[in-house]
């Protein structure tokens, strides 16, 4: 088990930092041109993941929600279709983390990040189908999107691992 934060204050501070970092990542990705709406590095999920490992699932959900709401408010897309896509993606990701953590598969940050990334993308595609494009052609591209998520999920997982290593140096191995 990762060393729990020494106090409630420490936990809240860390959560706040992670949420802020998530918002920053959200805003940054929103302004990155040319990657298209689908192929984002998903850095925001990275912080949710760290929150999950270090502070528990409930806090991770909070971090994700804050990130999506504050991020969209900042960018100006609150309550727009984009907002709902981000929301679905983030919720999907965090749900996958919760489920993945419960499964007896011995998953670490890389595995959970991968699951979260795939769930994030799938949730976004489903949301897009219902909210925006009711076109079956969307699903034809799904394998490509998922392939991208596969890569970013693993990369983010490695990054999360490295961050977690830093946060708790003697207990860097996953639970």
């Amino acid at each position: 088990m990762i060393r729990p934060p020494r106090s409630r204050l420490e936990a809240d501070l860390l959560a706040a930092h992670l949420a802020a970092a998530g918002v920053a990542a959200h805003v940054l990705e929103a302004t990155l041109p040319g990657l298209g709406p689908w192929f984002k590095p998903g850095l925001a999920n990275l912080f949710t993941l760290v929150a999950f490992f270090h502070l528990g699932w409930r806090t991770a959900v909070a971090v994700a929600l804050i990130r999506v709401v504050a991020g969209s408010l900042t960018v100006g897309t609150f309550l727009s279709p984009t907002f709902f896509l981000s929301l679905s993606g983030a919720l999907g990701a965090v749900a996958a983390m919760g489920v993945g953590g419960l499964l007896p598969l011995g998953l670490g940050p890389v595995g959970l990040s991968l699951l979260a990334a795939l769930a994030h993308m799938s949730a976004q595609v489903v949301a897009a189908f219902f909210l925006i494009l009711g076109h079956q052609g969307l699903f034809l591209a799904l394998p490509w999107f998922l392939a991208g998520s596969w890569v970013t999920g693993i990369v983010n997982g490695v990054l999360a691992f490295l961050i977690l290593e830093r946060l708790a140096p003697n207990q860097a191995s996953p639970p």
Binding site: G106, L107, G111, G157
Partner: peptide, 8 residues
């Protein structure tokens, strides 16, 4: 390799 478990 270092970051991932066999499950991963």
């Amino acid at each position: 390799v270092r970051a991932s478990t066999p499950g991963d």
